[in-house]
Design a protein around this nucleic acid. Sequence first.
DNA 1: TATGAATGAGCATTCATTCAT
DNA 2: GATGAATGAATGCTCATTCAT
Lengths: 206, 206, 206, 206
Amino acid sequence: MPPSPRNRSDPDRRRADILEHATGLIGERGYYGFTVQELARRCGLSNPGLLYYFPSKHDLLIGVLDALQADETAAMTPIVEAALQKSSDAAEDRASVLNVLRMIVARAVERPLSGRLLAALQTESLDAGHPAHSWWRARETVLLNLFVKLVDGHVINPAASARQLLAMMDGLCLHWLRADQGFDVVSIWEDALIRLLPELHKADAG
Amino acid sequence: MPPSPRNRSDPDRRRADILEHATGLIGERGYYGFTVQELARRCGLSNPGLLYYFPSKHDLLIGVLDALQADETAAMTPIVEAALQKSSDAAEDRASVLNVLRMIVARAVERPLSGRLLAALQTESLDAGHPAHSWWRARETVLLNLFVKLVDGHVINPAASARQLLAMMDGLCLHWLRADQGFDVVSIWEDALIRLLPELHKADAG
Amino acid sequence: MPPSPRNRSDPDRRRADILEHATGLIGERGYYGFTVQELARRCGLSNPGLLYYFPSKHDLLIGVLDALQADETAAMTPIVEAALQKSSDAAEDRASVLNVLRMIVARAVERPLSGRLLAALQTESLDAGHPAHSWWRARETVLLNLFVKLVDGHVINPAASARQLLAMMDGLCLHWLRADQGFDVVSIWEDALIRLLPELHKADAG
Amino acid sequence: MPPSPRNRSDPDRRRADILEHATGLIGERGYYGFTVQELARRCGLSNPGLLYYFPSKHDLLIGVLDALQADETAAMTPIVEAALQKSSDAAEDRASVLNVLRMIVARAVERPLSGRLLAALQTESLDAGHPAHSWWRARETVLLNLFVKLVDGHVINPAASARQLLAMMDGLCLHWLRADQGFDVVSIWEDALIRLLPELHKADAG
DNA sequence: TATGAATGAGCATTCATTCAT
DNA sequence: GATGAATGAATGCTCATTCAT
């Protein structure tokens, strides 16, 4: 039999390709449920060909999480900083806070693969022995603190509101994925924002 | 030599014991992540001793889900039926609806094992190939329909409110689990209910 | 295809059988060079069927070494103790010492499998990272001390004589194995004993 | 981006460097236990960079053995020939024979790397399937014949004496390596020579 | 000369399951 | 009811080697 043709490709492209497929596959099956072999197959690579880029299953997970985080940071940092900087215009402040909250969900909708990955790991990593456990705890702390800061000064109980926002956001994304993206998350989220943060909306008159 | 002490015990008790441990273990690791062997160990049974009761890993999952559903149905049916039967007293109607919503979360808090299991499978079963996939879709449909019926007549957009309630509920339970049960879900949920369903609360005066 | 017939056999027999084949195979290829699969094949077992008895390759090695040591201890202890107990008859003392030295080689000749295993591990385990490294150091210390005690009182420099005896013994066994057992080790060893320990031989007149 | 610093160096130097590291590594782990990758790492070369010089693992072994033999031949030939040429002076003859025997061990002590390699392969290559098997048989024949010729005319049973010398030599070197070079092999060997070849020593007076 | 990228074969080990008792 | 013994299939990973540059 002829040795399978060597799929040489640009290393950067290959790495990115692997990360994308890994995101999809881990999103589908979770970390425990996916196999390196299946990922290699999807990437059109042999098993060791894949492990050349990420030496172990664990490293693959870390690679995916790092890429996701880098991406998120790059996209969100500017608008988050804008929202945290109190201006002299109260209405503008409120708008920029809502902007961040809307953007997070909008991004999740535009990137269903990442959303799916986050959903999958969110529960799988509840267990202390899971390789993404600490990554998730850190992420949650950061997000919760961010939400607290965002709504602080606008609502009576920032901690409670932050939790509710985070819970609603995660829950909606989850249902949206399970419903095969069969409803309009964005508008339901907008509506939820009005109900959960009325103080930030009646503002137009302020 | 004494033949290893065969742990003979009442079959029904054994079955219940297995289901309980299975609930815990699948909750910790998910369906893909747990092993029959580990479950057998926790039950103090040999590997085939366990499979005598549930002939396969898949059957174990079904057994757990069926038990959970039976339990849930038994507990919720009466108060759900009470809430769905419109009485002549509007305030009472509203109270009974809120009662159902509060009870669902209260039950989850009292049964962290089941809550954990539901959380774990909720995302793992997003994939169409997962053995609990259709079970979850069915469950979601039922719950969503129930919520719609519950709030119908009280709010402007029952479908949207139902989704928000479901999302908030699932999201809060999830965060509560990840936070090692480190905040008061019940009160946050109560507070969320006030915000998401103001129509059902201002009612006392109505 | 029909599932291969299950080779059920008496567990004790099986264990002994595995140990014997393992001794042979590790003797042939060394610890690094042998594979669990090949051993399973030789035992007429599937791969996991073998690992049922010894859960890992490392455990196999330990099992083999323990068995070998137990066997050796059982066989040598009586004559060693006899040799170490000084009697009133000097000639008898000398004879019992020589008896031990002859017996060790005689046993190696009768058990070429064990001899081969010892030879293989002797050098392979020189490396500090080898799983039998410490086992061998312990063995060497014990043997050297034994030899020192055996010849003490009979020769001028017991430490040097002990080393020479040990070296000659190991070297002869090694060459005998490499020569496909093509010369008479026993008689060469007897002859070497006369040269290395003349004090113990001229004794007849003593 | 700068193309990774290609470690270009003088090919002969490189070859020698590889052989030295290979000697060390094979000595540590044996042929089965060492990996081409680890050797490449120690040489500061990429995996294929190493295989450029020795196209396969097997070729590496052969290269090492050939180098070792060439070295040995170059060093020993003169004194061996001197020892084999019977002169008119018997005492001188005896001295030159002892000189060879002393020199062999002295060389091993000065070159612990080669000594270790020889020790490692000595037992590993007992197996007929080992790539150095026939090399070792040849070496043994040559050495044994040499020893026989050396002691012929001086001792009663040259074949037996030759075997004993060879065994003692190999055994002492082995123990010396295992004892972390913690005793004086040379003097123990000298002492052994006196015991094994008294005829060659009392000679001074002869 | 030397490398980065890739591969087929094989490794120890684990898994869900089955058989015989 | 429950077990010890055994299995086929798969898993993550490593190995020596090769290709293209």
